[in-house]
């Protein structure tokens, strides 16, 4: 893992070309984490992948997490790996929930259409099935083809729209499922156990 000074060096070099990209760095449990602003995502990932001396060419994992009630609410994690130096670096893109306007002109738009129209630069915004606005981020499928299924999974569970993904639709849940299950305010579901004998006999 790049150690703490190495991580600060990386931050410094990114800040030279893209000021304002890196929001925070942290180094705990021997893991280096770069928290970045999602609008600079592709630039940072390209630099980390291609710059000589960095060359984090393998994306181990792409996953999202919901930090409710902290703001910004979502974060998409990119686990990068450099196989020659055997170093891992995690890039964390912090996404907030966009402020949802009341109603929504695109009520009932399917997410695929929304992301297709949003492919051209972020407006009109991606909307969920009820017209509420969904958080958006650029897709890194061009840089790392392994992200294809993993971004679909993040969309499926959190409702995060990846702009530029070739085929953004649900992957693990049924196609017509409503809701983003992995969000923290979605209930776990299931059925409560019914203790009928106890209730009948013991009140």
């Amino acid at each position: 893992m790049p150690d703490a000074p190495g991580l600060e060096l990386i931050r410094g070099q990114i800040e030279l070309d893209h000021p304002g990209a890196v929001i925070d760095t942290s180094f705990d449990h021997e893991r280096a984490v770069l928290a970045i602003d999602p609008s600079h995502l592709l630039a940072v990932l390209t630099w980390l992948r291609d710059a000589p001396g960095q060359e984090y060419g393998f994306l181990s994992s792409l996953h999202a997490a919901d930090y409710l009630p902290a703001e910004p609410r979502f974060a998409v994690h990119y686990e990068l790996l450099n196989r020659d130096r055997v170093e891992r670096l995690r890039v964390k893109a912090l996404l907030g929930e966009p402020a949802s306007p009341a109603g929504g002109a695109a009520g009932g738009t399917a997410p695929e259409e929304a992301s297709a129209t949003a492919g051209g630069g972020g407006s009109p915004a991606a909307r969920g099935p009820a017209g509420q606005r969904l958080p958006e981020i650029d897709s890194c499928v061009e840089l790392f083809p392994t992200a294809e299924f993993q971004e679909r999974e993040a969309f499926d569970f959190f409702g995060i729209v990846f702009r530029g993904h070739p085929d953004l639709r649900r992957i693990l849940l049924p196609e017509d499922y409503v809701g983003w299950p992995q969000r923290r305010d979605f209930p776990v579901g299931g059925e409560p156990v019914t203790f009928t004998y106890n209730e009948r006999n013991y009140g």
């Binding site: 569970f157 649900r170 992957i171 693990l172 849940l173 049924p174 299950p181 992995q182 979605f186 776990v188 579901g189």
Partner: peptide, 9 residues
């Protein structure tokens, strides 16, 4: 997705 069990949730 035919054996998706929601383990993570």
């Amino acid at each position: 997705g035919y054996v998706h069990t929601g383990i993570e949730k």
